[in-house]
């Protein structure tokens, strides 16, 4: 019961972050901040949802020998968590970099320095 509740909470939290990510993707002004919203929000929310599923699977768990298929499912879900954790931020980073190399300019408040540009020129 407690696992079911906990899992449900995590799934709902994940959905909230999904909503935030989608909102950011639509509302933010430029490529970089949109990618920020999409990358961070998406990674966190999918992790939360998948972990929530894993916890939910434990709701009628009694013993390791009896519920071996459940354990198998949880192991598979854990593998998914690891891979999302590895690949999703990497792809966001790669996309950002491709955008920068392609000359996509960030929107910067007037008067503020363009830190990205300074960094590149220093190299």
């Amino acid at each position: 019961m407690i696992f079911s509740l906990l899992g449900g909470l995590l799934i709902v939290a994940g959905l909230v972050f999904f909503f935030g990510a989608a909102l950011g993707l639509l509302r933010f002004p430029d490529f970089y901040s949109r990618m920020h919203a999409a990358g961070k929000g998406d990674t966190l929310s999918s992790l939360l949802v998948v972990i929530g599923f894993a916890l939910h699977e434990l709701h009628d768990f009694s013993s390791f020998t009896h519920d071996w298929p459940t354990i198998l499912v949880i192991l598979k879900l854990s593998a998914i968590v690891v891979f999302i954790f590895l690949t999703s931020p990497t792809s966001t980073s790669a996309l950002m970099d491709a955008g920068w190399e392609d000359g996509v300019e960030p929107v910067i408040e007037p008067g503020r320095p363009n830190v990205l540009r300074d960094d590149t020129e220093a190299r």
Partner: peptide
């Protein structure tokens, strides 16, 4: 080399994956 972080991040992840 030379702090090309991008290559390190993507390259390492690909090498693992």
């Amino acid at each position: 080399i030379d702090g090309d972080h991008q290559r390190i991040i993507v390259g390492t992840t690909c090498r693992i994956a």
